[in-house]
Amino acid sequence: MNDELNDMRRKYRNITAPPALATRVLASVPKKRARHHGWLPVAASLVAVVVVIGLAPFGLLPQSGKSSTPLRPSLSALATLKPVKPAVSAPNLARLRSVSVPSMPAKPPKLLKPQTNNPIDYEFFKEKYHAHI
């Protein structure tokens, strides 16, 4: 069995790929490796900056005479401005005092018999005291 298997193994290992296979494979994969596109955002932002710088003078130039848009205020003019506080009406104290309040209920009548707040039986202590003498 081993001889047969070895013979078969030898034949198997003699199998080689067709010579054109490598060429076929290399022809079917893309020639260039996929490029890294990490530079794209940088380039895009650079282009945007260039465009802004290039067009800004035209956009920011004040148009003579008939400009419909008001001029931009300068920083010094902005600094002199005071914030406008919203008007808040003060509360009317006279009206608050005139609010009617319901009267308090009548007090309960006082008890006629005086009551002791200490209901301890003092006689008990007296007896005890005598017992120890």
Binding site: R13, I15, T16, A22, V25
Partner: peptide, 11 residues
């Protein structure tokens, strides 16, 4: 890579 493995893959 292709040269190294092509025979084994083909077999």
């Amino acid at each position: 890579i292709v040269r190294r493995f092509q025979d084994r893959i083909f077999r």
